[in-house]
Simulated scan of single mutants.
Amino acid sequence: MAATGEEAAAMDSISKAPIPPSALNIKTDPDSRLENTSVEGVTESQPPVSKKGSNNNDGSVETAEEAVEPAEPDIDELCKDMFDKMAVFLQGELTATCEDYKLLENMNKLTSLKYMEMKDISINISRNLQDLNQKYASLQPYLDQINQIEEQVTALEQAAYKMDTYSKKLEAKFKKLEKR
């Protein structure tokens, strides 16, 4: 993901390439074991310089310093360019990763909200189910009475059919008797 415009300017200001050694103002203190270099308020510590002893009779110690060749300007520019481009690349990678995490965070928030909605819905369903169970329990005696009345009506209907059949038989006998 390449940065453009303001993002690129922000990336450039954040990631500056290290200063090449040839641009450093090196000040050496012969009595100190460390060399301190400073450029624009930045201090770097150098490892202690190795000292070689000599067989002098006066007991003094001779010090030797490592000769540092200045880097070629082409290499310095190429290194600086490489570090700048690497910084832009890494900044783009980090930005993409941050965007992925923001997306995941938003998805998690939405999922959490959906689960909260589903929880509310299930609580409402549970509450309504309890209300229905209570209403059914309060109606149960009336439903039992309706079942009893239905059974009685069925028994009365059977009795009425039997009486109708019996009365038809009686009528038939009575007509038979009248004809004789």
Score class of each variant (00 low, 15 high):
D164M: 08
E72I: 15
I149P: 00
T95E: 13
P70H: 04
F89S: 10
R127N: 14
N25V: 12
S138H: 06
E178G: 00
D29S: 01
T95Y: 10
A172Y: 01
Q134H: 04
S22Y: 03
L170T: 00
C98R: 13
S32A: 14
V39E: 03
N36G: 03
T97Q: 05
T63C: 13
E157H: 00
A172T: 09
C79G: 06
G5P: 04
I19S: 00
N25I: 12
A8Q: 10
A87Y: 03
P18L: 13
I75S: 02
I14V: 09
I121W: 15
L129I: 10
F174R: 01
K109R: 10
D81Q: 10
M11K: 03
D31R: 05
A155D: 00
D144T: 10
E7T: 04
E105M: 08
G59E: 04
E99A: 08
Q134P: 00
T28K: 02
D100S: 11
I19D: 00
V61K: 04
D81C: 04
L34R: 08
I121C: 11
Y115C: 08
L156N: 00
A10P: 00
N25L: 10
D100A: 13
A155M: 01
R33V: 05
E40N: 12
D144G: 01
D81L: 14
E62D: 04
M163I: 04
E157A: 02
Q46Y: 15
I125W: 09
E7R: 07
K175T: 14
I123M: 15
S32K: 07
C98M: 12
K85Y: 03
D58R: 02
E6H: 03
F83A: 07
S60C: 00
S122E: 10
K169A: 11
A160W: 01
L156T: 00
N56F: 14
N133K: 15
M163H: 03
E40W: 11
C79M: 15
M11G: 05
E178S: 01
L110A: 13
G41R: 11
A67T: 11
A2T: 09
A9D: 12
Q130Y: 06
V88N: 09
L24C: 04
P20S: 12
I149T: 07
C98G: 06
F89E: 15
F174H: 02
Q140W: 08
E44V: 15
G59K: 04
Q148W: 06
D58Y: 03
